[in-house]
Simulated assay, not measured.
Amino acid sequence: MLLRPAFLLAITMLFSACAEKGAGPVLSSGERYVSSASAVSDYRLGVGDRVKVTVYNEPNLTGEFWVNPDGTISLPLIGNVPANNRPVGEIASDARARFADGYLRDPKVAMEVVVFRPFYILGEVSTPGQYPYVNGLTAMNAVALAKGFTPRANRDVIRIRRQGETEEVNYRLTPELIIYPGDTIRIGERFF
């Protein structure tokens, strides 16, 4: 009779070890759990983003521009402006200074993101793939875009790899969990 509880304990420990092997800690607080307004307020551009540049009283210089694969935005007259991993306001100031350097007298430049780079969702969702990012996107919204969980999906923990990083981080899946443009989300399989 004592063997049965010991056997059950050993099996439980074995499955727990399998479930946690290589998983790392599961985060349930931090920058991804703050309000969505502050999450994108310090947004930094990356390859695949499209911005609208408005140069006041200069319709030929105004337009929408993609961040190129080399991390720059090609603007008329001034050429390539470094944009990768820089906030929009900083890039607009840089463009304003370049336009003022021999091209325009007292230029006024505004810039806003019109298309964010996509995010990716893999694993135990009905339709994994690439999806367009929208401001304020949460992990639950991302799963909904991918047509929901499969029956085998782990609905408690998800793994997210931010664009430009090599490691995935485990997060507790809550309605407040924020997704950033370029993120790769992986929904794992549950064991029971």
Results as ranks from 00 to 15, higher is better:
E90P: 00
K108D: 10
V115Q: 06
M140A: 13
L104N: 06
Y103K: 10
N85P: 10
F116A: 08
Y56G: 02
W66T: 13
Y131Q: 14
P87N: 12
T72P: 02
V88W: 07
M140R: 13
E90V: 08
Y120G: 02
S38G: 12
S93H: 00
G89S: 11
P82C: 11
R105F: 01
R44C: 09
A146R: 04
N141W: 03
G148P: 10
S74W: 02
R32M: 04
V47W: 07
G71S: 07
S36D: 08
N84L: 14
K147T: 12
S36R: 14
R44V: 12
E58H: 07
S36A: 15
I91P: 09
A92P: 00
G129Q: 09
A142F: 02
G48M: 09
A83Q: 02
K108C: 02
P59I: 08
L45I: 10
F116N: 03
G46R: 03
V114Q: 03
F119Q: 07
V125K: 01
A142H: 08
L61P: 15
S126Y: 06
A97M: 04
N68D: 12
T54V: 15
S35Q: 10
P87L: 09
R32S: 11
R152V: 12
N85L: 12
L75K: 04
Y33L: 11
T62W: 01
L61M: 10
T54I: 15
E58S: 13
V88E: 08
N60T: 11
T127Q: 06
V114H: 05
N80T: 13
G79D: 12
V34N: 11
D70V: 09
